[in-house]
């Protein structure tokens, strides 16, 4: 499979995964509409990764999950702090919208968990391969520090394949990114199973 076909395939996976993830989130939010932006699949050299998310000093909420099983990899769910606050408010109803306490943090962690699990379930069903998410880890900090910690956690080396889907809800008040960093070899196996690549 050439590189562009490969990236197209990844985009398709991301479309399906994120579709399920945002449906799960919509259900939690009583059917409020979510809009997905066309996924972006890229293979980036390490040198360009730092700049990939932009706004390095903005505060974001980031959730990080390690995937084990037949397909290994890493997933991150990043959203601006304001979006995280709004989401928690929509979910809990009673939140004063000021600062995130323990309860609000675990609500956010759970949101990330549900989204990522739905994403992975969709891919598992399609491929028949097992993908087990770890417990979600949450960080609220400068975007650069959170992103960099995700990349270090994934121990990325040279060229990194990443798939990102943006979504928004409530107009544009809630937005975020789901990022999938699949293990290269496992990914090639997925492609074979789906008949996209010769043995």
């Amino acid at each position: 499979m050439n590189n562009s076909a490969r990236l197209d395939f990844l985009k398709e996976l991301a479309n399906i995964g994120t579709g399920h993830a945002t449906t799960a989130l919509s259900q939690m939010l009583h059917g409020k509409l979510f809009r997905l932006v066309t996924p972006d699949a890229q293979m980036l050299p390490f040198e360009e990764l730092a700049e990939y998310i932009g706004g390095l000093e903005q505060i974001v909420a980031g959730i990080f999950i390690v995937i084990s099983g037949d397909v290994k990899g890493y997933m991150a769910f990043l959203m601006p702090y304001e979006s995280a606050l709004l989401l928690v408010e929509l979910l809990t109803g009673e939140f004063d919208g000021e600062e995130l306490g323990e309860l609000e943090r675990s609500a956010l962690q759970e949101i990330g968990n549900i989204m990522i699990t739905s994403y992975l379930n969709a891919l598992s069903k399609m491929t028949g391969l097992l993908m087990i998410p770890s417990i979600p880890a949450l960080a609220i900090d400068m975007a650069g520090a959170v992103w960099q910690s995700v990349l270090a956690g994934a121990e990325v080396t040279s060229d990194v394949t990443l798939i990102r889907t943006e979504f928004s809800a409530q107009g544009k008040a809630i937005e975020g990114n789901i990022i999938f960093l699949p293990d290269e070899e496992d990914f090639a196996r997925v492609a074979r199973i789906l008949g996209l690549e010769a043995e």
Binding site: V66, L138, G153
Partner: peptide, 16 residues
């Protein structure tokens, strides 16, 4: 050298 995702692998030495 911080450990932002502190509840992940609490028993091992963090990358930080």
């Amino acid at each position: 050298g911080a450990n932002l995702f502190s509840n992940l692998n609490p028993n091992s030495i963090s990358i930080g």
